[in-house]
Design a protein around this nucleic acid. Structure first.
Length: 138
DNA sequence: GCCAACGTTGGC
DNA sequence: GCCAACGTTGGC
């Protein structure tokens, strides 16, 4: 099983909104690197949900509920997306500040390339962040 | 609100 | 195919 991280501005689409929506397309991604990561996602992979801009913290865990398929909001046929379903919110959201302060997380894509909206997460990083958030990693 | 970093576009 | 210009993102 692989681990990932997706980003969203909570003003545009928040973890709570996604929780209410159930299994839901992760649409609107218009970046080739991000799309390529989504192409590699498998059903059951775990995904961190990160709130950018205002909150700047990892707020919850999702699971891939459908493999990559055409993005219904794109009529050019260029862009694809997966479906995600929320699993559990973090007991304590883990802030970007905490992540940057943690040497074991210095190599995270979130730190190195803050603009990439869909990114891989190493198993070690996954465990570490779950621990920081006092949340079950499974 | 500013600005740095990154990705994309388009002229040559 | 290169590179300058532009737009967008997101941390500060």
């Amino acid at each position: 099983m692989a681990y990932w991280l997706v980003k969203s501005e909570p003003n545009t689409w928040s973890y709570d909104q996604h929780a209410k929506a159930g299994s839901q397309e992760w649409d609107g991604v218009r970046n080739y690197q991000a799309r390529n990561h989504m192409r590699n996602m498998k059903v059951g992979d775990r995904v961190f949900f990160y709130h950018s801009i205002k909150e700047q913290s990892v707020v919850g865990i999702c699971e891939v509920s459908a493999e990559v398929h055409p993005d219904s909001t794109d009529d050019t046929g260029t862009w694809e997306c997966v479906d995600l379903i929320t699993i559990r919110p973090f007991t304590t959201p883990v802030t970007l500040k905490q992540i940057k302060a943690e040497p074991a997380l210095a190599e995270m894509v979130l730190v190195k390339n803050s603009r990439l909206s869909v990114q891989p997460v190493a198993a070690k990083e996954w465990k570490k962040i779950c621990k920081l958030g006092d949340t079950d990693p499974g």
